[in-house]
Measured scan of single mutants.
Amino acid sequence: MGMPNRKYADGEVVMGRWPGSVLYYEVQVTSYDDASHLYTVKYKDGTELALKESDIRLQS
């Protein structure tokens, strides 16, 4: 078993793309699913969504 190939840690605050949009919002990573390679993130309004790594970026 190798290390999970994840870029962002639980609790890390990053920018997540809103689905169907080009806009990124501040989100907190809450979990990562090794099987689906999706991150569960929480937006400031409390919305929780699963995002692909390509829809997440570090805060500038």
Rank of each mutant, 00 (worst) to 15 (best):
5 N>M: 10
21 S>V: 04
6 R>W: 03
54 S>M: 08
1 M>L: 13
54 S>Q: 11
50 A>K: 15
51 L>S: 01
29 V>G: 00
26 E>F: 07
45 D>F: 04
37 H>E: 15
8 Y>I: 03
19 P>C: 05
11 G>Y: 05
56 I>F: 03
59 Q>G: 11
1 M>W: 05
2 G>H: 11
34 D>N: 11
56 I>K: 00
49 L>T: 07
8 Y>D: 01
36 S>W: 06
60 S>R: 03
56 I>L: 12
45 D>N: 09
26 E>Q: 11
54 S>H: 11
35 A>E: 14
37 H>K: 14
41 V>C: 10
15 M>P: 01
51 L>R: 01
31 S>G: 15
13 V>W: 15
56 I>A: 01
16 G>K: 01
31 S>N: 11
22 V>S: 14
14 V>E: 00
21 S>H: 07
45 D>P: 02
32 Y>M: 02
41 V>Y: 01
37 H>M: 14
50 A>Y: 15
5 N>D: 13
5 N>F: 10
1 M>S: 15
30 T>V: 15
52 K>A: 13
54 S>N: 10
34 D>Q: 11
24 Y>M: 06
31 S>Y: 08
9 A>R: 11
40 T>P: 00
49 L>S: 07
10 D>L: 08
41 V>R: 00
3 M>F: 12
26 E>K: 09
55 D>W: 04
12 E>V: 07
2 G>N: 10
40 T>E: 03
26 E>R: 07
39 Y>L: 01
51 L>K: 00
10 D>R: 03
51 L>T: 02
59 Q>Y: 14
4 P>Y: 06
58 L>F: 09
20 G>P: 10
53 E>W: 04
24 Y>E: 06
2 G>Q: 11
2 G>L: 10
13 V>R: 09
27 V>P: 00
8 Y>T: 00
43 Y>T: 15
33 D>G: 02
58 L>R: 15
17 R>L: 09
48 E>K: 09
36 S>R: 10
12 E>P: 00
49 L>Q: 07
36 S>Q: 10
12 E>C: 07
37 H>S: 12
56 I>M: 12
3 M>I: 13
38 L>Q: 08
5 N>E: 13
13 V>P: 03
22 V>A: 14
55 D>Q: 07
20 G>M: 07
32 Y>E: 00
1 M>V: 14
28 Q>I: 15
51 L>C: 04
23 L>Y: 12
44 K>A: 11
24 Y>N: 02
2 G>T: 11
18 W>Y: 09
7 K>P: 04
44 K>I: 10
16 G>I: 15
